[in-house]
């Protein structure tokens, strides 16, 4: 029983490939991993002179996976990092959005969000995908 559970868990994580997307009509086409990290760690909000708006998901599994695979940080490290930004007056706390709000936000050009690849829609395009 335990083995079946672990296998199912493994299949779930294999399937849950996280990608970074934007609106299909955006001028953004591809972003290097380092720049995705800089955007989500508030070190820049521009890519090739285009101002981008990063969206943070309120889905804990998705967010944890994004922190681990793309930001290369544990969720606790990510939260400590943001606490530092917020309580030193550098940045306001990043608001987290549910799926419907993310869909709505991605109607705006140059808004970027991380999603599970299986949830990709026609009106979006992938700008970063982990190999």
């Amino acid at each position: 029983m335990k083995i079946i559970f672990l296998l199912l868990l493994g299949v779930y994580f294999l399937d849950a490939q996280i990608v970074v997307v934007t609106n299909k009509n955006s001028q953004l086409n591809s972003i290097p991993k380092e720049i995705v990290q800089y955007i989500y760690l508030a070190k820049t909000d521009k890519v090739e002179n285009i101002k981008v708006k990063p969206i943070v998901s309120d889905d804990k599994n998705l967010h944890g996976g994004f922190c681990n695979t793309i930001l290369c940080k544990s969720e606790s490290q990510y939260n400590s990092y943001w606490a530092r930004l917020v309580f030193t007056g550098r940045k306001p706390i990043a608001k987290r959005f549910g799926w419907n709000e993310i869909v709505k936000k991605l109607q705006e050009l140059n808004t970027i969000a991380y999603i599970e690849k299986k949830d990709l829609r026609e009106e979006w395009k992938i700008i970063y995908e982990e190999n």
Partner: peptide
């Protein structure tokens, strides 16, 4: 900057 914010420190 964040000496007093224990949550942000190890």
């Amino acid at each position: 900057d964040n000496l007093n914010v224990g949550y942000s420190n190890l």
